[in-house]
Amino acid sequence: MKQIVVLLMMLGVNTAITAQQRKIHLWPAAVPGETAAKQTAKVTADGSNNVTRLTDVTDPILEVFPAEASNSNGAGIIICPGGGYSILAINLEGYEIAAWLNKLGYTAFVLQYRVPKKEAGALQDAQRAIRLVRSMASEWKLEPGKIGMMGFSAGGSLTARASTQYNVHTYTPIDKADSLSARPAFSALIYPAYLDKGENRALTPELTLSSETPSMFLFATADDFYGNSALVMAGALRAAKVPVELHFYAKGGHGYGLRNGNPAGEAWPSLMEKWLKTVVK
């Protein structure tokens, strides 16, 4: 917690907000499908590029960053950091994104979903997170119908999966929250990965789209190894007549978050900010 406060102070976030930050354990008892004992996520030895990487997540949590009451717009966004489903780039694609969203008036929820290599568990965690936030919306003065999700890289994959499989029952309900919808009101995929695993790099088969799929914002670059994922997803959404906004830049690579010094990292936040105003009303 102390590290989080220091980080947010460096980012210029009001410490009165961080004082309200809290953790919500997604699963109060047993974690479905998890065989390892619950424990606090481990920070890896690799801190390169000023990125804090978490692994061995067996007790998934949401870290809550409420918007200031005077600035809140009544909407919440669950953030799914990336990391190849092996680690979570928790500051680059989690806390730093939460600080940015807070400034725009959104209450942010950073999701520590299960890693490494627990894709099925990660989807369970994402569905449970959406339902829990929706069930507790009044606590943060949010509207239950304005709970969205965004993700980066593998977190973009998870966001896409949650946005297209919200009617798939991935775990046995454990409380009243699980009677609520797991469908995000809107979704944003920033340099998403793993969405083109179909034949001839077509859409990944598990991503089944319909007219009820939430509106999406996508951002990627041509020099990103995973760049095709955004193109394929945008095309599939268009074919399904789902509102979609795609931005595809020439350069930027992968894994830049919103840090200065990268043209893509400097571009997508303002584009997404404008898009959010069209879907959050």
Rank of each mutant, 00 (worst) to 15 (best):
141 K>I: 07
142 L>D: 12
142 L>Y: 06
143 E>N: 14
143 E>C: 06
144 P>K: 06
145 G>P: 01
145 G>F: 06
146 K>W: 01
147 I>L: 08
148 G>L: 02
148 G>P: 09
148 G>F: 05
150 M>I: 15
151 G>W: 06
152 F>A: 10
154 A>C: 04
155 G>H: 07
156 G>F: 06
158 L>W: 03
159 T>I: 09
160 A>P: 00
160 A>L: 08
161 R>K: 04
161 R>S: 11
162 A>R: 05
164 T>H: 03
165 Q>P: 00
165 Q>H: 00
165 Q>K: 01
166 Y>F: 14
166 Y>R: 04
167 N>P: 00
169 H>E: 13
171 Y>D: 02
171 Y>W: 06
172 T>L: 12
174 I>V: 09
175 D>S: 10
176 K>T: 10
178 D>V: 08
178 D>M: 04
179 S>R: 14
179 S>I: 05
181 S>I: 05
182 A>I: 02
183 R>L: 02
183 R>P: 00
183 R>C: 02
183 R>I: 01
183 R>D: 00
187 S>A: 15
187 S>H: 10
188 A>C: 03
188 A>R: 06
191 Y>V: 05
191 Y>I: 03
192 P>A: 08
194 Y>G: 04
194 Y>A: 14
194 Y>W: 09
195 L>W: 07
197 K>V: 02
198 G>L: 04
199 E>M: 08
200 N>I: 01
200 N>L: 06
201 R>Y: 07
201 R>G: 01
201 R>V: 01
202 A>I: 01
203 L>M: 05
204 T>E: 04
205 P>S: 04
206 E>Q: 12
207 L>A: 09
208 T>W: 00
209 L>W: 04
209 L>I: 12
210 S>V: 05
212 E>A: 11
212 E>D: 13
214 P>G: 02
214 P>K: 09
214 P>I: 01
215 S>I: 08
216 M>F: 10
216 M>N: 14
216 M>V: 06
217 F>I: 12
217 F>T: 11
218 L>P: 10
220 A>D: 14
220 A>K: 09
221 T>V: 13
224 D>N: 15
224 D>E: 13
225 F>D: 15
226 Y>V: 11
226 Y>Q: 14
227 G>D: 05
228 N>A: 12
229 S>N: 14
229 S>F: 10
231 L>G: 01
231 L>A: 04
232 V>M: 09
233 M>H: 15
234 A>E: 14
236 A>H: 11
236 A>P: 08
237 L>K: 03
237 L>F: 07
237 L>C: 12
